[in-house]
Amino acid sequence: MNTTLEKLSPWLFTIGIFVLWEAACRFFNIDTFILPSPSETFAAMAQHWWPLMRHSFVTLWTTMAGFALAVAFGIVLGLIVGWSRTIYRGLYPVMIGFNCIPKVAVVPILIMWFGIGEVPAILTAFLISFFPIVVNVATGLATMEPELEDVLRALGARKLDIMLKVGIPRTQPYLFGSLKVAITLAFVGTVVSETVGANAGLGYQIALAGSSFQMPLVFAALLLLAVEGIAMYAVFAYIEVYFTRWAFRSSMSAAA
């Protein structure tokens, strides 16, 4: 019985929040203009379903494109950084500095370069989400057990051998773990860019509806964004377990 409750609990909590929200709106008689109730939000969603669908799709594909770039670039840079201490020390301050720059400040530059459209959104998603991937891949390489490295070096293994046989495989749990963080960040990047300047996407929809005081539509777009984020997170959580089952199992057996 406990396990069914545990399985249902995400749904129960989500529904509970909506119920609370609805009750609060009615009980305190909150103006739609301040906080639309869930029923009004869902009504707006039904009414504007076609533009919302279109914008959701734009946001989804630009996010995935930016995320794909981030994964490719993040893995390569992570391997390079994890490979050599010199490169690690050299690049780390630069990367941290870059990561500290608010990406919303970069969007106008990207729009200047590439014009209004999907490209700035893709690039912002990429810029905001590659950092955790780099850090995790580099950490996976850097935390290799020194004894294991000794075992291999005493066999005459070159650095490349050690990387291929041990370093890269053991980095996998770190990589897949970081993808879950990175995908949600990528959504943030896309929407930030769409809000600043775009002609499609949920961020654009939110900015547009906000400027015409259509608060239920704003909230409908926000909800769809959350749904997309949860769905993609779930996809990558599944991929993580699928590819790195050994990491989960071995940690479970260590606890047993």
Binding site: E145, L148, V151, A154, L155, K165, R170, T244, W246
Partner: peptide, 14 residues
Amino acid sequence: IAGMAFQNPNLLPW
């Protein structure tokens, strides 16, 4: 030409 083993078995879990 050396084989080595340590206190920790250091096997590769994958």
